[in-house]
Computed example of a mutant assay.
Amino acid sequence: MSAPVSTVNDAVQAALATVNDPEIHRPITELGMVRSAEVGQDGVVRVELLLTVAGCPLKDKLRSDITAAVSAVSGITGVEIEFGVMSTEQRQALQTKLRGGGAAGQEPVIPFAQPGCRTRVYAVASGKGGVGKSSVTVNLAASLAARGLSVGVVDADIYGHSVPRMLGAEGLPTRVEDMIMPPEAHGVKVISIGMFTAGNAAVVWRGPMLHRALQQFLADVYWGDLDVLLLDLPPGTGDVAISLAQLLPNAEILVVTTPQAAAAEVAERAGAIALQTHQRIVGVIENMSWLELPDGSRLEIFGAGGGQTVADSLTQTIGAQVPLLGQVPLDTRVREAGDDGNPIVLAEPDSAASKALGQVADRLAVRRESLIGKPLGLKPAGR
């Protein structure tokens, strides 16, 4: 005896609820994308699905995910999907839903700067270029995502953007009304000015434009519920570092340096800006610490001790402990993996560089606990 039609319909709806939109990562039923789903007498389910935008790049994935989920329902003999596109009103309703009730057209807020936000925000800074800051950022992001955390990266190095290539993020952002859906690679959501420029065109902007770009990356992009957000800052203490302090005063600073004394001196300046912005320095990472030779000995190409020198100096300057989080050895595979868009922590997880980066990721993989609704045990002081 076949199951009642109502029971089969319920099972189909339950199956559709297990399918997430590949960009928003929430059930398609919750997002209002399923316009209808009917089970025919022949056991074929006919689904009408509304895409957020015409020409959705992940249309084929939606088709395969829906087909797999619905085909698993007992009694279903086939799945036919007809794709439509949301109306302007439907997209605006979706935008309002995703922004937590804020009306479309209102100035978007930066979720990471709101009270109660549990996302840890790490700004990766360096005093000078060429110390491997972007490489460290990308590998930390991939390592954190591999540990099961929800991770995002903002390529805030507007002039020298390189994160998409190093992370292998080849997709382009999708726009839903005033929101931007970031592409994803290796489980990491990423946004970069390079995704909005033609070819390898140079970005020639002054301070106000840089500030507005960073603001849009933080407010207009739909990041979802992140555990960790990493920002790859440009070298030095210029406009972007100042804007970051204004937009994300709760961001914590990660200082990257090499062992070289000259690089360490400049890195100290980049870290010391935290005194003026009142941001916390979470620690120092020394990159390119040494080259391991075939006989097991170490060749210190850039000298030694720069990372510890920076950590000690910042500890004294700031008056709070600034630890040396790790020393990452020099390895040509780090560069090769970055050029291939496959971070070394994933491509060569047993390499010394991967293990060093993994240890740093372990120290950063802590989600901020919200204090909302929690008793703090405070008592009024007696007179």
Rank of each mutant, 00 (worst) to 15 (best):
residue 205 W to Q: 08
residue 300 E to Y: 07
residue 290 W to A: 14
residue 104 A to P: 12
residue 132 G to P: 02
residue 325 L to G: 01
residue 247 L to M: 05
residue 223 W to T: 04
residue 369 E to C: 07
residue 200 N to K: 15
residue 76 I to S: 03
residue 233 L to D: 03
residue 274 A to C: 13
residue 345 V to T: 11
residue 287 N to C: 09
residue 133 K to F: 08
residue 214 L to I: 01
residue 321 Q to K: 15
residue 60 D to L: 10
residue 40 G to F: 00
residue 367 R to Q: 12
residue 209 M to Q: 10
residue 190 V to W: 04
residue 183 P to V: 12
residue 240 V to W: 04
residue 140 L to K: 05
residue 266 V to S: 00
residue 87 S to D: 02
residue 118 R to W: 09
residue 226 L to M: 09
residue 336 E to P: 00
residue 332 T to P: 03
residue 135 S to D: 01
residue 102 G to M: 10
residue 43 G to D: 08
residue 334 V to Q: 01
residue 70 V to F: 02
residue 178 D to H: 01
residue 224 G to E: 08
residue 271 G to S: 15
residue 49 L to K: 09
residue 143 S to I: 05
residue 54 A to Y: 14
residue 224 G to Y: 07
residue 54 A to K: 14
residue 162 S to K: 02
residue 247 L to G: 02
residue 141 A to R: 10
residue 29 T to W: 04
residue 140 L to I: 10
residue 247 L to E: 00
residue 240 V to A: 07
residue 328 V to H: 05
residue 132 G to A: 06
residue 354 S to Y: 06
residue 28 I to T: 03
residue 317 T to A: 05
residue 161 H to C: 10
residue 280 R to C: 13
residue 243 S to V: 06
residue 353 A to Y: 08
residue 104 A to M: 10
residue 34 V to F: 08
residue 205 W to C: 08
residue 316 Q to A: 07
residue 62 L to K: 06
residue 257 T to Y: 02
residue 354 S to W: 05
residue 25 H to A: 13
residue 334 V to A: 00
residue 161 H to P: 13
residue 245 A to I: 09
residue 166 M to N: 03
residue 205 W to M: 09
residue 174 T to L: 03
residue 371 L to T: 06
residue 68 A to S: 11
residue 59 K to S: 11
residue 141 A to W: 00
residue 301 I to L: 04
residue 164 P to F: 01
residue 357 L to F: 08
residue 322 V to T: 14
residue 258 T to A: 00
residue 383 R to G: 00
residue 191 I to R: 05
residue 90 Q to P: 11
residue 171 G to L: 03
residue 238 G to Y: 02
residue 234 P to F: 07
residue 150 S to T: 14
residue 64 S to Q: 05
residue 278 H to M: 12
residue 218 L to T: 12
residue 333 R to L: 13
residue 45 V to P: 01
residue 361 A to S: 12
residue 231 L to E: 09
residue 97 K to Y: 06
residue 193 I to F: 11
residue 187 G to D: 04
residue 129 G to E: 03
residue 372 I to C: 03
residue 31 L to E: 08
residue 111 P to K: 09
residue 111 P to H: 07
residue 280 R to L: 15
residue 312 D to E: 12
residue 239 D to F: 11
residue 381 A to C: 01
residue 152 G to A: 04
residue 122 Y to A: 15
residue 81 I to M: 04
residue 122 Y to S: 12
residue 255 V to A: 11
residue 350 D to K: 10
residue 364 L to I: 14
residue 68 A to I: 09
residue 134 S to M: 07
residue 28 I to L: 02
residue 90 Q to A: 08
residue 361 A to G: 14
residue 102 G to H: 11
residue 115 P to M: 02
residue 290 W to K: 10
residue 17 A to I: 10
residue 50 L to V: 06
residue 254 L to T: 14
residue 205 W to G: 12
residue 234 P to E: 02
residue 133 K to N: 12
residue 17 A to S: 07
residue 312 D to S: 14
residue 369 E to I: 12
residue 286 E to F: 07
residue 338 G to E: 00
residue 48 E to R: 08
residue 255 V to C: 12
residue 9 N to H: 09
residue 162 S to F: 00
residue 185 A to L: 05
residue 83 F to A: 12
residue 274 A to D: 14
residue 193 I to Q: 12
residue 335 R to D: 00
residue 351 S to W: 13
residue 69 A to R: 13
residue 320 A to C: 13
residue 83 F to M: 12
residue 252 E to M: 15
residue 25 H to L: 10
residue 330 L to G: 05
residue 211 H to C: 00
residue 300 E to S: 03
residue 159 Y to I: 03
residue 319 G to T: 13
